[in-house]
Amino acid sequence: MNVGYLYSLLAVIVLGLIAYAGVEAAGLQWLFGILIPYLGLTIFIAGFVYRVMDWAKSAVPFRIPTTCGQQKSLPWFTPNRIDNPATTLGVIVRMFFEILLFRSLFRNTRVEIRGERLSYKWVIWLWLFALMFHYSFLIVVIRHLRFFLEPVPWVITLLEKADGVLQVGLPILYISGVTLLLGATLLLLRRVLIPRINYISLAADYFPLLLIIGIAITGIMMRYFTKVDVLKVKELTMGLATFHPAIPEGGISGLFYVHLFFVSILLAYIPFSKLMHMGGVFLSPTRNLANNNRRIRHINPWNHPVKVHTYEEYEDEFREKMIEAGLPVEKE
């Protein structure tokens, strides 16, 4: 049995309790409200740059795109310009679809043995949940900029209006908050309930999902149920964003610090985990290279300058002997 998710769940619960107790019992607001958020952001940015620079150092000797269509060839073959791009433009279009629409997930198939036959079935769920999850996350994060910008730019207000179009309840229900929690939960259930996926899942697969679910739950609790003093929250976050950090007088509920602590952990965790796919997707050599191996010569940068002895030189050296031995030579 895979107990990875139990460890991850335990880790998230313990982290939440640490932040809650740290604030409510030990009064460590400055630690969870100022120091750890700054630390999390610093680790995130420095770690991210380090990881990407590490990747940047690797040589790109040869093009290794995965090809999913006809390569550009003789004029009477129709090439697939996106799935087997020959030009930079093709690559840009391919990357656009990959990054914004998760094209390769869209092609997900499931292999099954049906009776006597092996069958491949197109399965769309992973793509759907992933798209829902990632876009909700993006919208929620952009909406959160209202805590960090003063005055709040009109685009963010517009996004809030669009997100709240349903005009359900007060405070207005944000669709993206619901779809974020739903998407993350479905992705988690996929890993827990489908036996084959469960088998290959590690604690490192469950932890980020559970952490994000934790962030979403604490956020939703704060907004719709237990309520926080949003003005105080903004006072704190604006202090952080202007490098005049201070804990507002009167205090903010412990739940807010749990939310903030989870976010700080998530930020610090990104560079060390699979969440680096955020930067990695831009650098995947199987997607971001044009398939032009046969048209353009790619020289391996780590080739040593090899001392070569060409046939012409060889013949120059041994011509007399070759003629004596009756061997054919190119130049007389």
Partner: peptide, 15 residues
């Protein structure tokens, strides 16, 4: 990722 720091010019805002 550091946009808020640029946008606010480090100026403290009043509640």
């Amino acid at each position: 990722f550091t946009f808020p720091f640029w946008y606010n010019h480090g100026a403290a805002s009043s509640v």
